[in-house]
Design a protein around this nucleic acid. Structure first.
Lengths: 211, 211
DNA sequence: CACCATACGGAATCATGCTTCCGGTTGTCA
DNA sequence: TGACAACCGGAAGCATGATTCCGTATGGTG
């Protein structure tokens, strides 16, 4: 019910806060480079602290990943909202699309988490981000800039598919090329109506479960 | 130099051969369902044998994954060659594209391996498959069916990106929709020339290394 | 500046999965 | 049918990584 962080009386020691920041920064860097499989010990080392400190601030590894992913989502959310303010809906979506892909590609943890099967960790901002993307897309559809037979879930899916694949083994140049291809594919076509029906968010999250 | 399997004198006991088959089949099933992270013990259980038997036939887990992936590649290779025989190059590529995606989606292990960063396991058939896809694509390009500013590596990449993402959390219907979108994006366009240059196979394999 | 709650480092502990090993079983051939 | 090498199952052994614990150090406060 109540907020997660309260301030009893003694707020927190200054060095403790500093260390927490360092850990978070180190984790963000490392996750970005190598995905969230990096070991706690490496994070600790890069942050210049002991493992104990990492684990005190983030009781489990999932907590740490969450914290990093949340940061990333917040950034993207900000971009999405900016894009929503732009007058040309089609251009706005495209620009955001490119930005998001680029961002995800340098933040593997994010890419991994965004398209995660059953999201191991339910980061709340993610939802907001999804909604913003949805609006961005609907606006573009209304303006006739992209085909109308796809849903917001589809876009998220495609985007993270590309981010994932390219962050794994290709460079940023390839990524841009794929984005372009997909964007071309998203243009309004009368040529080939898509099979199936547009997906929204709820659906891309509930399909499969882990054992 | 010489073949991997030789027949000294006593070829192999009948039950042993049978068990090996069972293990391979079980592994294929499980990897298809849950990706190659499933545990040896589960494979053994499904095959109705003990872990020892699994490990005797496939000394390490990578060996087991290799065996399964090889099977899959062989199947796909066969399809690719069939497609090469069809007269309409564009249609052939499309059909193969759809088949490959469908196949990969139900064989997560394959999808994972096909786009693998530094391929943990160098399955030889993979190379042949890649080459076949390349030819398929060049034929389609020569026929003007798809845009000429992409390479075989790009196609493989896109394909496995989609397979990966959809096998993770969406159904087969979504997969087909994404394939359609990408295929639309691959049509010859004068609208938006792609940034960068086409990738071939060598390049998608050597970009990043694991620590 | 003395006190002490808070925070620290990192060794020890625990969990998870792969691999090896060994006593017992079973095909195969004479 | 007997002998024996090839196999089998699954428990024990290892390796890898996360999490906990505890003696020591330190920022903050009276």
């Amino acid at each position: 019910m109540s907020a997660i962080e309260e301030q009893p009386a003694r707020p927190q020691r200054a060095d403790a806060r500093r260390n927490r920041e360092r850990v978070l920064a180190a984790a963000a860097e490392l996750f970005a480079e190598d995905g969230c499989k990096v070991q706690i010990e490496q994070v600790a080392q890069r942050a210049g602290v002991g493992v104990g400190t990492v684990c005190r601030n983030f009781p489990t590894k999932v907590d740490l990943v969450d914290a990093v992913v949340t940061q990333g989502c917040e950034l993207l959310l900000h971009e999405a909202r900016t894009a929503l303010g732009e007058p040309d809906a089609g251009a706005a979506l495209r620009r955001f699309f490119v930005r998001m892909a680029a961002f995800q590609a340098t933040h593997r943890a994010l890419a991994e988490e965004m398209s995660a099967p059953v999201p191991a960790s339910a980061v709340p901002v993610k939802q907001a981000l999804h909604e913003a993307v949805g609006q961005l897309m609907e606006r573009a559809q209304a303006a006739g800039a992209i085909r109308s037979d796809i849903g917001a879930g589809d876009v998220t899916m495609l985007l993270s598919a590309i981010s994932h694949a390219t962050s794994l083994s290709a460079g940023p140049e390839a990524r841009e090329r794929y984005i372009s291809i997909v964007l071309d594919g998203l243009r309004p076509h009368d040529a080939s109506p898509l099979p199936g029906r547009p997906l929204d968010f709820a659906e891309i999250q509930k399909s499969k479960r882990r054992s």
